[in-house]
Design a protein around this nucleic acid. Structure first.
Length: 245
DNA sequence: TGGAATGTTGGAAC
DNA sequence: CGTTCCAACATTCC
């Protein structure tokens, strides 16, 4: 479900609930006091990276779908929702297997919108600067760093490195300037492609590296390895993806 | 059918 | 005290 573009789709599907009053709230979440939501009006719906944000007058509900989270709009499914919001006209929002937290501070204090790869305010120069400040980091870790690329996930990582022809264990500090900038550019470009393809239900069809066995460029067998700080699965071509070390 | 996967967190270990 | 490591969580698919 959940890399940045999927959360954009979630927002588009729920933005009509902006202005609606929550008539009832229930669910199995223990991280927030659900009773506080009842009677509140949704004043906005926002996203930051993989965070889905339901803004109420005095606080915000943050929903993170993690790896397995899901949602249903105006219907349920055969599972206990972590959070269900009910509205007039029998309309409802259901969220399952997600992490829910409450944010009491102003969102502009909590979030740097210019780090969100799906936000038009994303600041390419800042991202480049942050990358430069971590020369010893592997590039595969940097792409997953939500402080630099909020919303980018493991699919982004594999696809972006393939597009830029960079080996995942390249050190940031060893990348030529043009290559480092290319990474930033490709993250944003892949975000747009991801959103477009996901909406058309053809995301997987367009994977060039993620889960793939052979390189579409040269036919070489992809390497699959669990790399970086978080040991996430990484697919890459030893032939065409250059190691900068 | 056991294992793995688009992810994060919190606490233990050092 | 900072950093690193890992278990835990939870659902779906092959």
């Amino acid at each position: 479900m959940p890399e940045g573009p999927s959360i954009i789709i979630l927002k588009e599907e729920t933005i009509a609930f902006k202005g609606r009053k929550i008539l009832n709230a229930e669910g199995s979440t223990k991280k927030i006091d659900i009773g506080d939501l009842i009677g509140q009006r949704i004043i906005d719906i926002k996203t930051w990276g993989k965070h889905f944000l339901i803004c109420l007058p005095k606080f915000t509900i943050r929903i993170h779908l993690l790896m397995f989270g899901s949602y249903r709009i105006n219907e349920g499914k055969n599972a206990t929702p972590r959070l269900r919001l009910s509205f007039s006209n029998n309309e409802e929002l259901n969220f399952y297997a997600c992490a829910i937290t409450r944010i009491d501070r102003p969102l502009d204090e909590v979030y740097d919108w210019s780090a969100d790869v799906m936000n038009k305010k994303f600041d390419t120069r800042k991202a480049n600067k942050k990358l430069k400040e971590e020369p010893m980091e592997f590039i595969c870790d940097a792409i997953l760093d939500q402080d630099i690329f909020a919303g980018a996930g493991n699919i982004f990582k594999n696809e972006v490195l393939f597009r830029a022809r960079i080996h995942p264990l390249s050190k940031i500090g060893s990348l030529p300037d043009t290559k480092r900038r290319e990474v930033v550019k490709e993250v944003i470009r892949y975000g747009k492609d991801f959103l477009k393809w996901k909406k058309a239900f053809v995301l997987r069809k367009h994977w060039e590296a993620h889960t793939k066995k052979t390189c579409p460029r040269d036919g070489n067998r992809f390497t699959k390895a669990y790399l970086g700080k978080t040991h996430r699965r990484t697919f890459f071509c030893d032939v065409c993806q250059k190691l900068y070390s």
